[in-house]
Computed example of a mutant assay.
Amino acid sequence: MQEIKELKEMLLEELDLIVRTSTNLIGKISTNHLDYRPRDNMRSLHELVLHLVSVPSTDLLILQEKGEEEVRELEAEAAADHEPEQWIARMKNGLKDVRSYMEQLPDEEFLQKKTKPFYLDHGTVQAKWLIEIVTHAQHHRAQLFNYLKQQGYEVNMFDLY
């Protein structure tokens, strides 16, 4: 159905926007601020960036029912990246992989195929997984925005659109 394709494309466009704006924010970061941590119980700026750029790839592995070990390996690979260009490339590649996976799904599978993550005892349909990836990335982009604001970076709402 055309409506399902349009909905899927709207969600993928939103993820495109989140990746573009996230990578623009990452490009503003001075390396001497990477150790910034708003509170002891929160991620450092560097840890947050590594998590954010891994969201598309990691969430895709999880929805594809990969095990915890494979997800941890991907996170370890991301932690080995030390340059903003590497972080940005990782997030863009993850977006490309999510887009490719979602676009190849037939409408029926997008709406009805359930996959179960290693950490839950029930599955979730692919459409909801795509929503989860979008909201997960958006959540951490907002955290990044706030971290940068707290460090005095010149960022505003226009950096999010």
Rank of each mutant, 00 (worst) to 15 (best):
L144T: 04
K28P: 05
F158K: 15
V155Y: 04
L105D: 07
E103K: 11
N93G: 02
R90A: 09
F158V: 06
N41M: 10
H46R: 13
Q150K: 12
L74I: 10
K149G: 01
Y36P: 02
V125P: 05
M42P: 02
N24V: 03
Y119M: 01
E65N: 14
E109D: 15
H33S: 03
S54P: 02
Y161I: 13
I133S: 02
G123R: 12
K113A: 11
S30L: 03
Y153T: 07
G27T: 06
R39Q: 06
I62G: 11
L130T: 07
I26L: 04
K66F: 04
L120M: 12
Q104T: 14
P84T: 04
F145P: 07
A80S: 10
G123Y: 12
L105C: 07
K5G: 09
V134N: 05
M102L: 00
D35T: 05
S57Y: 10
D159E: 01
D159M: 01
Y147N: 08
R99N: 00
A142P: 03
S54E: 06
G94S: 03
D81L: 13
L74F: 06
A76R: 11
L11F: 10
E77S: 06
V71W: 02
T31C: 08
K116S: 04
G27K: 01
L52D: 00
Y101I: 01
Q151I: 04
D97H: 11
L63R: 13
P38F: 05
G152R: 01
V125E: 11
V134D: 02
W129C: 05
Q104P: 00
T23C: 15
L63W: 14
E14T: 10
I131M: 11
S57Q: 07
R72I: 06
L15N: 11
L63V: 13
A80I: 07
A127G: 11
S100T: 13
V155F: 01
Y119V: 01
I26Y: 05
L7K: 03
T124V: 15
K8P: 03
E83S: 12
M42D: 06
D159L: 09
D97Y: 07
I26N: 10
T23N: 14
K96E: 15
L74Q: 12
Y147E: 10
R20H: 01
E85S: 14
V49W: 00
L74H: 09
I26S: 01
T31Q: 00
A89V: 08
V134E: 03
S54W: 04
R99C: 02
K92A: 08
L74E: 13
E3I: 13
V49Y: 00
V125T: 09
D121I: 11
H122L: 12
V125F: 00
A137T: 00
E83N: 12
Q143N: 13
E13R: 14
L11P: 04
V98Q: 12
I88H: 08
K96S: 14
K5V: 13
V134Y: 02
P56V: 03
Q104K: 15
S30G: 08
A142T: 15
D121V: 12
K116P: 10
V134T: 02
P117F: 08
P117N: 05
E109F: 14
R72Q: 14
H140F: 06
E70R: 10
N32Q: 01
I131D: 07
E77C: 08
L48R: 01
L160Q: 14
A80N: 09
G27W: 10
A76S: 06
L105A: 12
